[in-house]
Design a protein around this nucleic acid. Sequence first.
DNA 1: GCTGAAACAAGTAGTGT
DNA 2: ACACTACTTGTTTCAGC
Lengths: 159, 159
Amino acid sequence: MNHFDYIDQQILLQIREDARKPFSQIAEELKISNSLVHQRIRKLKENGVINKAEFVIDEKQIGYKTKSYVGIRLKEARYAKSVVNDLAKIPEILECNYVSGNYALFILIFAYDNHHLRNILYEQVHQIDGVAGTDSFICFDTNFKRQITLESLVKGKQI
Amino acid sequence: MNHFDYIDQQILLQIREDARKPFSQIAEELKISNSLVHQRIRKLKENGVINKAEFVIDEKQIGYKTKSYVGIRLKEARYAKSVVNDLAKIPEILECNYVSGNYALFILIFAYDNHHLRNILYEQVHQIDGVAGTDSFICFDTNFKRQITLESLVKGKQI
DNA sequence: GCTGAAACAAGTAGTGT
DNA sequence: ACACTACTTGTTTCAGC
């Protein structure tokens, strides 16, 4: 487990909201040198706390209007690995997890519309060897979507 | 619906993978001026296609080991709005959607461990007025997690 | 572990085609 | 819609505390 101090926490809070924020500006606000900001960010990368900076694309704006979570049941548990492999080939599936409960796998799909979603499920997912059935949870609206809190992050003294 | 050309597509492909990639470098690779890169990105922002750049934080590295999707059933549909309001106050809930199917709401929770998850569900979520019950889909492993494909984005000629 | 200065690279804005 | 130039700003490295 990593150790974070107040500076690390503050840097993380800022860059996760704006990955293009100038390091020099962060330095100014925290009243530290910009080389220190640089150093800390390098260490956070080395420790795998942050990996990459991404511009967030609004899926709706580029035509993907239907978002749906889908639970997948398998004929037998041993199919899991090969099913995951086949699911990975479908570009509209953005996330795939092994889960507890009624389903073996739980995936996230973005499709152009409901019809497109239906096609992906019936013509692609259901054709995969080992898939017994699926249940869809189509998202009518996303009420909120946010990043994890960092308030509890600082183990040391907060200056 | 927006119109995208080859340049827009290429810029999006690059900055969504590395939001800190110098615009001048993108310009060089696409053999255009860096002011054009700048212009295009400004337009993509104006159109809401991209909104912000975020550094991706690895939740596991900062102590959140348990990821779980949770379906929520309500006593009556009319509770939906106030329940969403109360869910938003729980910081470990990172996403909340209205969905079709067996559940009214579908949320994503990150907790320190299974015990912490149990506490959040029993002591917080289940106490909310209108919540009838929940089903948890704890993620044992995330096989993949990726961004949407942009191959189909270009409506015009690809040079 | 941190700062400060200096060399270098990138972002920005205005002008012209 | 795009490129070019001049100007401003940010990044990065390294010697020194």
